[in-house]
């Protein structure tokens, strides 16, 4: 685990040196270039996410499984939806494809993830459950929790 952490740190440090996706070709071509997610920005700073996403996912996983807490911010389902990479046919790729968001870095760092032995590695084709669409439940507290998290990160 320690070596993984070191590797991740090194990798992160290396990536951070890179300018954004618009960088001219030729800049450190050996480094992975993960696809951008949808939307303005990630649920936390990119460099912070690079170091800590696994911890947050692990934390959220137990909260969800045991306590039924289903906040959106660090939900794996949310990551997968936002970071879906489309194949030539327009459909999101599964983790079987080397272009899958998670694989871009994990392949480079040689860190194998087993999340997708059970979890879906791409969003549902047409997000349907039986019959009715899932009502999006506005949460009064989600925003507050998010703000609190963000503040704690700034410290």
């Amino acid at each position: 685990m320690r070596s993984v952490a070191t590797l991740t740190t090194l990798l992160t440090a290396a990536i951070l040196v890179l300018p954004s996706a618009t960088a001219p070709a030729g800049d450190a071509p050996w480094l992975p270039k993960p696809a951008r997610g949808q939307g303005e920005k990630c649920v936390a700073d990119t460099d912070w996410m690079r170091r800590n996403h696994m911890t947050m996912l692990m934390h959220q996983r137990d909260d969800t499984v045991y306590d039924g807490i289903r906040t959106k911010r660090f939900s794996l389902k949310g990551c997968i939806e936002c970071h879906a990479v489309k194949a030539a046919d327009g459909k999101p790729v599964t983790v079987a494809s080397p272009t899958h968001f998670c694989r871009t870095c994990h392949d480079y760092a040689a860190v194998r993830v087993d999340c997708f032995e059970c979890h879906a590695s791409r969003p549902e084709a047409t997000a349907t459950t039986t019959g009715k669409a899932t009502p999006v439940r506005p949460s009064t507290t989600d925003a507050a929790v998010l703000a609190q998290y963000l503040r704690s990160l700034e410290r």
């Binding site: 939806e81 599964t94 079987a96 979890h119 879906a120 549902e124």
Partner: peptide, 9 residues
Amino acid sequence: LEDQKPHAP
């Protein structure tokens, strides 16, 4: 398995 339901791993 693959392509499980996202809400039912």
